[in-house]
Simulated assay, not measured.
Amino acid sequence: MPHLLDWHLLDDATWRRCLTAAVAHYRAGKTWTEAARGKSIALIFFNPSLRTRTSMELAAVQLGAHATTITPGSGTWGFAWGEGVMDGDEAEHIREAVGVLSRYYDALGVRLFASGTDYEQDRTDALLHTFARHAGVPVVNLESAFYHPCQALADAATLATRFDGDVRGRRFVLTWAYHPKALPMAVPNSALLAAARLGMHVTVARPAGFELDEGVMETARAYAAAHGTAVEETDDPDAAYDGAEVIYAKAWGGRLRYTDPDAEAALRASHRGWRVTAERMARTRDGVFMHCLPVRRGVVVDDAVLDGPQAIHLLQAEFRLHAQKAILEHLWGLPHPRLEVFGPAFVLD
């Protein structure tokens, strides 16, 4: 089953093919096709969404397919996940729900955020894999506990377009930012892996206590090493900007949230100075600013940066639509646009 649970589970050829297709869709503009006529996808959102939901709905329609969005517990039964007797509030088990939807639709999309309480469950994406295991059709991850492949493809296509395919060796900084909530690690994990797989030189800037998962870091280092680049870490919120060509800001919670939430909140609050400012951006090498959105102005990043010429976060958001088209084509085995947009690292055979 050609699931897309995350890109690191798929080979380089698939990654490059989908990346090329996303850029091709961007260059083609707002085109509508009939490539997926007769296809359908159910989008199950256990968590809120703006960009992922609307871009996937529109991508399906623009390819000629039908999309249905489902919010479990709101207009549907609540779903149970565990084993044993169902004597709680949930009326339907996820096995039956996914089994039924698989008989109606040609693909399923699911958004399942991190629990924030069970690190092993989150690290292994246990709920996402449970969902996929019971599906009889391809499943696409619309953001899980640990990964966001839709965002990752859009980010990679944005970078490839911004630098006209010449991304290898460029300096990419993934910087932690303060946020009043302990956010999941899915987006920073995926941004890190995408940049490293593109062959960029990556620096992860974060305070002590906010390290990303070592398994994700090891995968990123392997991607970078294959290109002759590296993945580094620093706890210096200023030095990381020196000479950077991309600043990707994202807040995420520390590991303490799983064992001592109060201590994690206190530690996070002590680093309010980790914010993207115009002064820090001035230290870059004409660097661009990226963020997956939604973003808190004045908390994660200053207005002067978001409203300035270095910000490409809206282009990044636009690429969500083009990435979703490429993903649906992959899931359904449809022909990707064969457009020679870049050099050998990106062009199809």
Results as ranks from 00 to 15, higher is better:
219 T>Y: 05
221 R>G: 07
221 R>K: 14
222 A>L: 12
222 A>N: 03
222 A>H: 05
223 Y>W: 06
224 A>M: 06
224 A>T: 14
227 H>T: 15
229 T>K: 13
231 V>E: 10
232 E>W: 09
232 E>A: 08
235 D>K: 14
238 D>E: 13
238 D>H: 10
240 A>C: 13
240 A>G: 03
241 Y>K: 03
245 E>D: 08
246 V>L: 05
246 V>I: 09
248 Y>S: 02
248 Y>Q: 08
249 A>H: 09
249 A>P: 07
250 K>Q: 10
250 K>G: 04
251 A>N: 02
252 W>M: 13
252 W>F: 14
254 G>F: 12
255 R>A: 12
255 R>I: 15
255 R>N: 14
256 L>G: 09
256 L>A: 13
258 Y>E: 13
258 Y>V: 05
258 Y>C: 08
261 P>Q: 12
261 P>T: 02
262 D>I: 12
262 D>N: 12
263 A>L: 04
263 A>Q: 15
264 E>A: 07
264 E>D: 06
264 E>K: 04
265 A>F: 04
265 A>C: 04
266 A>D: 00
267 L>P: 03
267 L>R: 02
270 S>N: 12
271 H>F: 01
271 H>N: 10
274 W>Y: 03
275 R>Y: 01
276 V>F: 13
278 A>F: 00
278 A>I: 00
278 A>C: 02
279 E>C: 02
280 R>P: 02
281 M>G: 03
281 M>Q: 10
282 A>W: 09
286 D>P: 10
286 D>Q: 15
287 G>W: 02
289 F>G: 04
289 F>W: 02
290 M>L: 11
291 H>Y: 10
292 C>P: 04
